[in-house]
Nucleic acid binder design. Structure first.
Lengths: 157, 157
DNA sequence: GCTTTCCCTACCGAATCACTAGGGAAATGG
DNA sequence: CCATTTCCCTAGTGATTCGGTAGGGAAAGC
């Protein structure tokens, strides 16, 4: 009972932070996994696996050898946070392990499906519009800033 | 890698559906756990545990014996979906198991915190304004309907 | 050929998830 | 009082996932 309705996994969090380090260093210099791990306090071998996913997902390119490392495959302003999470951790939102459109509800729960869809659409809207460049430059889009400025958004329960 | 960034657990989904059955039956008749389980296709003993949480959370009252069962402790239009999820499953949104305000990020990830806060605020806004009465009557608030009407919201990714 | 770095597979303990089992306690009906 | 019904509580369980480790192999550069 002490978990949470919706959680962002360590994988997703680490993936985004690693991508942000790459976005910040973006001037053709590539960063080594070990450097990213140190900068963000992420276990190095665990991070290697995540960076592999980002590479297989086409978000990052890698180079081996002495001057090797990772860099973004595309400009930072063309990679949304949602892209990173999806590549590292699968679909953005799911209910009981399946994606909302695959659900079917009966009786008074029938309108639950459109509700989950609305929640998902909203999460998509935010995480799909905010890019690595936005976060790395600490310049979030206006609507996101508005949401985050509300002091009530920072209170716990 | 095939999970999801944000998931709604079976507990939360079941809890909301059970509460919706109670909301629909709301004319002082109480429903037995077995009846709710059958109506929504939820494993009966599992549901009993969830109903216990709802009772301890003050959302539901119970009565034992032949004419016993469960009913809502308050009118259905005063119970938000968020209330049900929180009681059944803990905080609405968390990152790596902790709630956003307890996080601390460094370097280019510094603006990640306000981003998670904004996501959480948005989820709260929807799930906090939609009540059991809304869903049970299939009359969602206008802004939620608008979100759910967009055909793009129903496409997978 | 040597170092550096990425890359891959496998493994691990602990926790969590979704559920089940079994019985005890109260309310009702007779 | 007794039987039935229903909720209530504790404990357990198999499967999966989570977060992380270990070890070595393959390529790039000097």
């Amino acid at each position: 009972m002490d978990n949470c309705g919706m959680r962002i996994s360590a994988r997703a969090d680490y993936a985004v932070r690693a991508a942000l380090e790459l976005a910040a260093a973006e001037d053709d210099t590539s960063l080594k996994a070990e450097a990213i791990a140190a900068a963000q306090g992420i276990p190095h071998k665990f991070l290697e696996g995540i960076l592999g996913d980002l590479r297989r997902g086409g978000l990052v390119v890698s180079q081996r050898g002495g001057k090797g490392g990772y860099r973004l495959a595309r400009p930072a302003d063309s990679i949304a946070i949602a892209d990173v999470i999806r590549v590292a951790d699968g679909p953005l939102v799911s209910v009981r392990g399946v994606r909302p459109p695959e659900l079917s509800y009966g009786g008074p729960a029938e309108s639950l499906l459109p509700l989950w869809i609305a929640v998902r659409a909203n999460v998509r809207k935010i995480l799909g519009e905010v890019t690595l460049a936005h976060v790395a430059a600490a310049r979030l889009p206006d609507d996101v800033v508005t949401l985050a400025e509300d002091p009530e958004a920072w209170t716990n329960p």
